[in-house]
Amino acid sequence: MLECLFVRRKLYGYFCREFAEAEHDKIKQHLDACPACRKKLEEIEELIKLAEARKTPEVNEAFWHDFKTDLDRRLNARLVPELKLRPGLIYKLRPALVYASVLVIILGLWTCRFGSRARRINIAQSAEELVNEINLNDELSLESGLNHDEGAYIDEFNLLIQLDESPA
């Protein structure tokens, strides 16, 4: 009976094959001779089999598509406030401000030279115009060989999206 008590405490380890061969064989010998302990082992086997049979339901492509769409929406929603609060934003936007200044100077010179023919410079009134301006800045920076900072560009673009989404 004492042996049964020891064996029963080891049945789960025996089931998981956690013991060295000698120990494993010793338990096996006991089980071969003891129907009561064998029954206990069968109970554990049944329990684990049932637990392992509880599989995650099969999900299809549509499930993952919805999952990713929702995830992106939730992540973007949290990224926008972060952008608003980030103290380094002005610093990151510095290259953009430099490009904007260069643009103003060039446009100023152009206006002086072709004053009568030039149209009045409009301040960008919509997000679309802002995007155009940024694109112009990019071209300008490429021409003048400035090293455009991608992070600043993304910040800029996110800011435009924010402006675009905010009520006029």
Binding site: T56, P57, V59, F67, L75
Partner: peptide
């Protein structure tokens, strides 16, 4: 899923995990 017991809850929690 194994911890919450429901696939829709699991989906919701997993999105939070990735965030």
């Amino acid at each position: 899923y194994n911890l919450t017991g429901n696939i829709e809850d699991a989906k919701d929690v997993l999105q939070e995990v990735f965030i």
